[in-house]
Nucleic acid binder design. Structure first.
Length: 378
RNA sequence: GUGGUCGUAGCUCAGCUGGUAGAGCCCCAGAUUGUGGUUCUGGUUGUCGUGGGUUCGAGCCCCAUCGAUCACC
């Protein structure tokens, strides 16, 4: 069954929307945050906790990582990623375009595709729009991403223009390949195209129009949060959202901080993913309603109050700040688990709350107050 | 007991033919945006074992002393 999007509410004072995405693996209520599970696992948390405590509705996997390890043979033998990792809710896979940009060494980009070397063992590989679609068929995610080039920031206009030309040509080939192949496991896979164009208005506009013309089941905005100022990121997001179809979900890739997410929801974005809650958790940074805590800080050494009195994860009341600080200082694995559970619970609650406020019609005010509080440092 | 080697930051150690001390780790902070539990950026820390002496000036040279360690008796 095709992926559907039902637009349930539109905010009167901003472009925020509340909606419902339906996939063959279940429903996703938007706006939504999608925890990143690069290698088929959201690091430091079990699928059980991800469901019950985090209340994640969809998670990500990475074509690049899964292709290198465990490899397509094993994924195929397992019956796809859902069966392999036991996650029976929706999954989205990134195409590897970003990883080729951020991880792989010695990459060479041509119209044909990207030659790159594995960050694991240096072995040489070629990604093309066609084989990336084939790999994503084998992984079997519900939402799969077009193979794109993510230009760096800063990036001169000529580079951005050439890069966009490649991304657009690749996009045609992605759709061609998907249209001439079938899903392997009986459930539908929706291909989302990605808007690029760096920080150039005309290129972003051109890209968004081209992406919109594909009439895809959902659309993504890429190439942002790569180091550009926040204002520029919001400007580009706003521009692109004004062009992308209103009746399809919009996915802002790789964003971001809790404040980035609320601001982007106000611009009309429905879906987010980011490594921040999980990676920063592993470095001791916790996001809370009252601000950001670094659990490595000495000031928590003798603080035996609950980890987060306002938190709703079981770890927030079960563990104390002093204990979690000790676990980080001692490099205990439990520290990573507790911090990850906390941050993901916070991120998912943040977007649930945003959805509630959109439906209530009080999103704009709530967003402004909330951004002030959550960006403080504790 | 005799002879040798060595005592420098919390730890492991640099420190040239004398010009009043550095690194890594630890510790204390910060960064991290389609994930390598990674990485990066700052910062604090010293009676140079102790007491004398030589010298304009000693971590460095001399004497004594304490401690560690090795070899020999």
């Amino acid at each position: 069954m095709a992926l559907t999007f039902e637009l349930q509410h539109t905010d009167s004072k901003s472009n925020a929307r509340a909606g419902k995405i339906t996939t063959d693996h279940g429903v996703i209520e938007t706006p939504i945050f999608m925890p990143v599970g690069t290698a088929g696992t959201v690091k430091a948390i079990t699928q059980q906790d991800l469901k019950n405590d985090t209340q994640a509705q969809i998670i990500l996997g990475n074509t690049y990582h899964l292709y290198l390890r465990p490899g397509t043979e094993i994924l195929k033998a397992a019956g796809g990623l859902h069966k392999f990792n036991g996650w029976d809710r929706p999954i989205l896979t990134d195409s590897g375009g970003y990883q080729v940009y951020s991880l792989a060494a010695n990459r060479k980009i041509t119209y044909e595709g990207v030659k790159f070397r594995s960050h694991i063992n240096g072995s040489a590989h070629l990604f093309t729009p066609e084989n990336v679609m084939d790999i994503q068929r084998i992984i079997g995610a519900d939402i799969i991403m077009a193979f794109d080039e993510c230009p760096p920031y800063p990036c001169d206009k000529q580079y951005a223009k050439n890069s966009l030309a490649i991304t657009n040509r690749w996009l045609d080939r992605c759709f061609n390949r998907i249209n001439e192949t079938e899903p392997l496991y009986g459930h539908h896979q929706a291909l989302f195209p990605i808007v690029q164009g760096s920080v150039y208005h005309d290129l972003r506009k051109e890209s968004a129009e081209y992406v919109a013309s594909k009439n895809a089941e959902g659309n993504a905005i890429g190439g942002l949060s790569v180091g550009e100022p926040h204002e520029q990121m919001y400007e580009m997001t706003d521009l692109v959202c004004s062009i992308l179809p209103k009746d399809k979900p919009r996915y802002l890739m790789g964003v971001g901080t809790p404040a980035n997410i609320l601001e982007s929801i106000a611009l009309g974005v429905d879906m987010f993913d980011c490594v921040m809650p999980t990676r920063n958790a592993r470095n001791g940074q916790l996001f809370t309603w009252n601000g950001i805590m670094n659990m490595r800080n000495k000031k928590w050494e003798n603080d035996f109050s609950p980890l987060d009195p306002d938190g709703e994860s079981y770890v927030d009341s079960f563990y104390t700040k002093a204990y979690v600080r000790h676990l980080f200082a001692a490099e205990e694995l439990l520290a990573l688990q507790i911090a990850t559970a906390h941050n993901l619970n916070f991120y998912l609650r943040l977007v649930r709350k945003a959805r509630e406020k959109i439906i209530e019609g009080t999103f704009a005010e709530w967003k402004n107050e909330t951004v002030k509080k959550i960006t403080q440092r504790l």
